[in-house]
Nucleic acid binder design. Sequence first.
DNA 1: CGACCGATCGTCT
DNA 2: GACGATCGGTCGA
Length: 186
Amino acid sequence: MIARELLGKIIVTNIDGITTSGRIVETETYNGITDKASHAYGGRRTNRTEPMYARAATAYVYFCYGMHHLFNVVTNEKDIPHAVLVRAVEPLEGIEDMLVRTGKKKLDFTLTKGPGNVAKALGINKLHTGLNLLSDTIFIGEDDYNIEETKIASSPRIGVAYAAEDALLLYRFFIKGNLFVSAKPR
DNA sequence: CGACCGATCGTCT
DNA sequence: GACGATCGGTCGA
């Protein structure tokens, strides 16, 4: 499952001349047209969801609750709308710039905990939807960091109670004990 | 602590 | 015209 493989990888953004990066510590899978929690459920295809139908390594960013941008990585072949939501990262480069972007005063676990905060801290917004993640604006990298299998945990996804039985699926993955991992499922 | 609530607007019906 | 893949602050126990 791609959501698991993304754990421990690094997301880097070069936006407005500023470089910021963070290590991915929490993700959620949105599993295509049969997943009631996915925007692409039932094959729904609109201007907003179109980037989900692009090939892997495309960004799907969308605006939620009137105030948050959520960043996803598209993970499958063209016309198969699978995506992984990045829910939390651990800040690496550009922490000062992330503080400015989020209006926070000092580094703590709230800086990049939760998908809205991740996008805000990294400077990602809906202009970046559809962007190729092999470009130098936003890309996924890795270093020699290696997660032990036993440190990876899974749970139901957050905030998708409306998805009926699909809300129970263990599609959320996170690094056990990491301070930047967001809330328990509600 | 946990529960509740307000902010705020693009997207789809 | 309703609602959401959220966050953070406040209130009461």
